[in-house]
Simulated assay, not measured.
Amino acid sequence: MMERKRIIGVDPGSLHTGYGIVESGKGGLIRVLISGTIHLSPRKPFTERLGLIFRELVKIIKEFRPCGMAIEDVFCAANPKTALKLGQARGAALLSAITEGIPVYEYSPLEIKQAVVGYGRASKNQVHRMITTLLGSHVPGDSHASDALAVALCHLNSEKLRNLSKVR
């Protein structure tokens, strides 16, 4: 019998950080417990935005008690300043998991798209459509939240594959 697993997926950003918690259960059924986006005002100092990402994710982790965090790994951005801000937002999210004592699993955008859509170069729209197909009407229209759910699903799919390879 498969044990229930709750995973929080995070799509970090300095203005919009998506999150989503999925739970896997009997028969491979996966359901969405919560998903959304932490919207951050560009008028607020950057350090305040980082603090908000951290506090909001800690609150969500405390309420839903996931057994791990799956997060999008750093990718190269064309603008070094943008890449640095993204890395710092990612750091605030990572710290929320570390503070709450849950393990962190990192996946590249290519791995996430491959695991969810079957094609590593899929568009955001294709990812959103597949997440809606897989998880039903519980998926918000917001691309940040659906990307976070995709990261969580990527982890569940990757974990299944790791467990299958141990059996063989």
Rank of each mutant, 00 (worst) to 15 (best):
M2K: 06
E3W: 02
R4L: 13
I7P: 02
I7K: 00
I8T: 12
D11Y: 12
G13W: 11
G13P: 12
G13K: 04
S14A: 15
L15I: 15
L15R: 14
L15C: 03
G18Y: 09
Y19Q: 11
G20V: 07
V22K: 00
V22E: 01
E23A: 12
G25C: 11
G25W: 01
K26F: 14
L29V: 15
L29A: 13
I30A: 02
I30M: 09
I30L: 05
I34Y: 05
S35W: 01
G36L: 05
T37N: 12
I38K: 03
H39M: 12
L40F: 05
S41C: 12
R43T: 14
K44F: 05
K44A: 13
F46Y: 13
T47I: 02
R49H: 07
L50N: 00
G51R: 11
L52S: 08
I53T: 08
F54D: 06
R55M: 11
E56T: 15
L57K: 10
K59F: 11
I61V: 15
I61R: 07
K62N: 15
F64C: 08
F64S: 09
P66L: 12
G68V: 08
M69C: 13
A70C: 11
E72D: 09
E72C: 11
D73G: 11
D73F: 06
D73C: 05
D73W: 06
D73P: 00
V74S: 13
C76Y: 12
A78D: 10
A78F: 07
N79W: 08
P80T: 10
K81N: 14
T82S: 15
A83F: 04
K85T: 05
L86G: 04
G87Y: 12
R90E: 08
A93P: 10
L95P: 03
L95V: 15
T99C: 08
T99S: 13
E100F: 04
G101L: 04
P103K: 10
E106Y: 05
Y107L: 07
P109E: 01
P109T: 07
P109Y: 03
I112Q: 02
A115E: 12
V117A: 01
G118M: 03
G118L: 06
Y119T: 01
G120N: 08
G120V: 07
R121A: 14
A122C: 08
S123V: 09
S123K: 09
S123G: 08
K124M: 06
N125V: 15
H128E: 10
T132R: 13
T133W: 01
T133L: 14
L134S: 00
L134F: 01
G136N: 00
S137Y: 08
S137N: 11
H138D: 10
V139P: 01
V139F: 01
V139D: 01
P140Y: 02
P140I: 00
G141T: 08
G141R: 06
H144E: 00
S146Q: 01
S146I: 02
A148E: 03
A150D: 00
A152C: 02
C154H: 01
H155V: 02
L156G: 09
S158E: 07
K160G: 03
L161N: 08
L161M: 14
R162I: 12
N163M: 09
N163T: 04
L164S: 05
L164N: 02
L164D: 04
S165W: 04
K166H: 03
V167W: 04
